[in-house]
Write a protein that binds this DNA or RNA. Sequence first.
DNA 1: TTTTTTAGTCACCATTTGGTGACTTTTTGT
DNA 2: ACAAAAAGTCACCAAATGGTGACTAAAAAA
Lengths: 218, 218
Amino acid sequence: MEKKPAALPARNKERSKQRLLDAVGKLLKSKGYPALKVNDIATTAGLDKKLIYKYFGGVDQLIDEYIHAQDFWSNVTYDEETDIADGGLAFTKRMLHAQFEYVHKNKAFQKLILWGLSEQRKSLKQLADDQEANGALLFEQITDPYFGNQSRQFRAISAILVAGLYHLNLYPAANGSMFCGIDLKKKEDRAEIQNALSFLLEQTYKELPETSSKDNNL
Amino acid sequence: MEKKPAALPARNKERSKQRLLDAVGKLLKSKGYPALKVNDIATTAGLDKKLIYKYFGGVDQLIDEYIHAQDFWSNVTYDEETDIADGGLAFTKRMLHAQFEYVHKNKAFQKLILWGLSEQRKSLKQLADDQEANGALLFEQITDPYFGNQSRQFRAISAILVAGLYHLNLYPAANGSMFCGIDLKKKEDRAEIQNALSFLLEQTYKELPETSSKDNNL
DNA sequence: TTTTTTAGTCACCATTTGGTGACTTTTTGT
DNA sequence: ACAAAAAGTCACCAAATGGTGACTAAAAAA
């Protein structure tokens, strides 16, 4: 059983498993997570639903395996050669811009975020935790040293910017694309968002270290 | 038929309609939009599902009527007395802060945003358009005059901030509450977000008018 | 080749869901 | 008091859905 098949066999467990996983992704992208039903997944994969139970134990396990197979965040790492003499300004700017475009182009990822906002599910929580852990590393190694006792403020600012670029990419998928007068579907308007991200980040790097630790005002 | 009932009648069309609408809201808040099925709505309302068809024509119309009945955005208006000599800095800051808390507290609104991100639906598009129209007024009357040829940049910045506060309030509902090291469920961490909003807005009002119109850089 | 294992299909059942016709009960008008 | 109209319930059906046992066909092992 555990031998490499000579030619292309008509029946192949791994290939079928993969087709089922692919079907989940396809349905997720096209119809969203509420459409992930056994019958639909099976017919989309062109296979019998029985196989879902045989190979994965059920739809839930199949879905979890799909989610775990997704490897986002692997693109957001920094190696030793990244220059962080500027406190990570250039690095962070590049990262935000890249993330903005990445979310924009990756529909499966959009749906996964949306799903994570909508439903409680262990594997989605896991995904969120992974993201958080990844981000924590970057903050600790790059920006915290630069901002010192203002590092929490910087994290809050980052939260707003990252959350903003997420939402701005989820928004135009369903109803309307205008948000604050910006057309999220137009290339030049998206460029304005990129500029705004740069501007806000630059101002933060320039002015946040100046402000004293405790002057909160409404 | 169109007379005021003497005492409290056991049968009352309007009251039943309202109960069905309330049931929609209750289910939406507790289970989200995928849970809005005829049988569930009827049993939640304590009425027969037949009435949904009789009074509204079907679940879809009932849901649309629920959505239209919601009147968000009525809280975000400005009267003649608001001081906009500062270009609307104080006003905008107050608005963002209020909106941040409003979304945080209003679970039905959160679910409605989420729904709008997830599904195409006329009444949700309408809601989004209303919001957009409301915002357009504020931009045109208050901030556009102040920022002049930089007003598009200001709109992009506003988009990021508003989108950010939306997402940061949707995020902690389902899986995990940590976002960029900020615990969105902790009061003091939410205060950091409010401070960050203030900081970014102040920097924008201070520095954006200085920058020339066309120096976009990566 | 024969046997045994495993991939894959199909028919079938139970449960849930959307939807409606026929009925009962209350209210309203005369 | 009576009849008409409207509020509300119930039983029932059709379609979709989740799930499984019994089967067939193809690979692998003997």
